[in-house]
Amino acid sequence: MDKILVGLKRAVDYNVRVRVRNDGSGVETDGVKMSINPFDEIALEEALRIKERGEASEVIVVSIGPAEAQQQLRTGLAMGADRAILVESSESIDPLDRARVFLELINREQPGLVILGKQAIDDDNNQTGQMLAAIWDRPQASFASKVELNGDSARVTREVDAGLETIEIDLPAVITTDLRLNEPRYVKLPDIMKAKKKPLDQVPLAEFKIERSPALEETFFEPPSARQKGVMVNDVAGLVSALKDKGLI
C-alpha cells in the first residue's frame, strides 16, 4: 500500500472538566487545554505501525479546523507522520461536510487506507468515518480493536455490544479506532525538532468547493441536571439498611 490518511481533530483535552457558558452559546474554550482527540492518536499509532511493518510507504495526517490545529498536526508529525494537511476553517463544519473534505483529499492522494477515530470526544458524534465510507462507496470497519492487512484486503476485529466481531474488508477502506487497538507512543524531544522540518500544507476550506449539506443548528447549550450528593454509611450493615429503605433489596 502506498499511503494512509489519518484524521487528527483538535479537541478539548480529555482531562478538562468542561463548563457550559452562562448564556448557553456553547462550552467555555478560552484558556482550555486542547489536544489531539484521543481516538485519533490511536489512529495515527496504528498507521505508523503499519508503515513500520513495511505495509505502507507514507502516513499523512489531516486536520480540518482553525490555524491553531497546526499544533496537533505538529505533534502528529513528531509521532512519526510524514506530512500534514490543515484544511483551515475558523467555523466548525458538520460531519457530512467533513467527510466530503476527506473524500476530496482521497481523490487527490489516492490512499489505500483511511484511519479515523471512532468518535471525537467533544461532539461525541461518532459519524465521520462511517459517512466517509458511504460517500466513497467503500467498506467501513468501525470500532476496531485489531487490524490485520493481507494485501488487498484486511481483517478487522470490532468491539461491539455482543463481544468481538471480525469482518473482512476489501481495500481501500475506512477504519475507525476503538481504545484497545493500541497504545500510542510518546513523543521524544528530538522528534519534535525533526517535525518542524516536515511539510505542513495549509489549504483554506473554500478551496475545496465541496457542496455543503443541509446544516444542523445547535441552538442552546445547558449543563446536565446534577445528581444530588447522597449519604455515607459506616459499614455493611448500614449499606444493607440504606438499600432496604429505598426498597432496592
Binding site: 478539548v12 472538566r17 468542561v18 470526544i121 467533544d122 443541509p214 445547535e218 441552538t219 447549550f221
Partner: peptide, 13 residues
C-alpha cells in the same frame, strides 16, 4: 456532548 458534561439542543433542517 462532551461526555455528557453539556446538553445541546439541535435543530435538523
Amino acid at each position: 456532548v462532551y461526555a455528557g458534561n453539556a446538553i445541546v439542543t439541535v435543530k435538523a433542517p
